[in-house]
Amino acid sequence: MNDWFPEILSWPFLAAGSFFYLVGSIGLMRMPDVYTRMHATSVSDTFGAALLLIGMMITAGFSLVTAKLLIILLILLYTGPVATHALARAARYAKVEPVLHKGEEGSSSKL
C-alpha cells in the first residue's frame, strides 16, 4: 500500500465523524431539557468520537499511535455512558421534570 491510500481511506471516517460530532453538539444546544440533551451528546460522544478515532487509526497504520488511539477509544466508550447514567440519576433525584409536551417551561427544578 503506497502512502496515499490510508490517507484517502481515512477521509470518509473523519468526515462522517465530524458530521456526527456537530450533530450531537447542535442537539446539545437546541434540545428542550436535560434528558434530551443527554441523549444528543451521547450521540456525538460515542459515534462521532469513534468514527474520528477510527479515521485517525487508519492514518496512523500499525504503530504505537494506533494503540494509544485504541486506548482512548475504549476510555471514551466506557466513561461516556457511566457519566451520563450518573447524571440522569442525579437529575432524577433532584426532581428535574422532563418536558413531555410542547410549550412547557424548560425544567421546573429549583436548582
Partner: peptide, 15 residues
C-alpha cells in the same frame, strides 16, 4: 437552567 446542564456541558467539553 439547571446545574445538570452545566455538568453535562462540562462533560462534553472534556470529551
Amino acid at each position: 437552567p439547571t446545574v445538570f446542564d452545566r455538568v453535562l456541558a462540562a462533560n462534553t467539553i472534556g470529551t
